[in-house]
Design a protein around this nucleic acid. Sequence first.
DNA 1: GGTACGATTGTCT
DNA 2: GACAATCGTACCT
Length: 213
Amino acid sequence: MSGPSRDLPDLRRAPRVVAPDLLGIRLSHATPEGVVTLRLTEVEAYEGERDPGSHAARGRTARNASMYGPPGTVYVYRHLGIHHCLNVVCGDEDVAGAVLLRGAEVVDGQDLATRRRAASGVVRSARDLARGPGRLASALGVDLTHDGLVLDVDQMWLRGAPLAERTELQVRSGPRVGVPGVGGDGSRFPWRWWIEGEPTVSAYRRATPRRLR
DNA sequence: GGTACGATTGTCT
DNA sequence: GACAATCGTACCT
C-alpha cells in the first residue's frame, strides 16, 4: 500500500481484477428523495470482445456504448423489458468492460429503498431489498436515465476500501449467473465473486439452455 | 418491417 | 421447479 489509508479500488484495471475489490465497498446514490447507500456483497465481471457472455461480445452498439466509457462510468441496461441492471465501467476508455452489481446490503436509506421496492412490487424483508441485480437497481432508484453517468461527478459515488483479507473463507468465486460458463475456446469464465455467508447474495441459477437451431 | 430473445423476478404448483 | 411478464435491441429479410 502506498499511503496510510487503504483507498478505493483502481477502476482503471480490468473488470475481473476490479470486481473482487468492490466487495465490501459502499455505493451511494443521492436523489431529491434522499440518499441510499449499499454495501456490495456480490459482483460479476464482464469484458469485451473476448468475453462471449458480455453485451459487448459483438462490438459497440448504441445500448452498450457506456461500457466503452472511461472508468467510473455507470452502465445501466433494461432487462426483459422490466428490470434495470447497474454496472460500474472499468478498464481503459474505448475498451469494453464493466462490473455488474448483483447483490448488496442496504446500510443507509433503508426507508427510501423500501418505498421504492414497494412501488415496483412486493416487499419481503430488508435482506431482499438489494438482493439480485434488478432489485439492487430498484432500491437505489436507478434506471435508464442514469446510463452514462460518472461516479463522483454525478450524484453517485463509491466509498470505503476493499476487504482487508480476501481469503477463500471470506470471498468465493464461481460461474456467472445466467451466462454459459465455458467460452468458445474452452476457457472458463468464473467471474462472479461474493462474500461468503452474506445473506444478501443472490441465488445461483444456471444459464437457460439455448434453443437448438 | 418482422421477430427472436434476454447479465431477472415473482407467482403458482 | 416451472413459467409468465414485457419491451428494447439486434439481427434478418
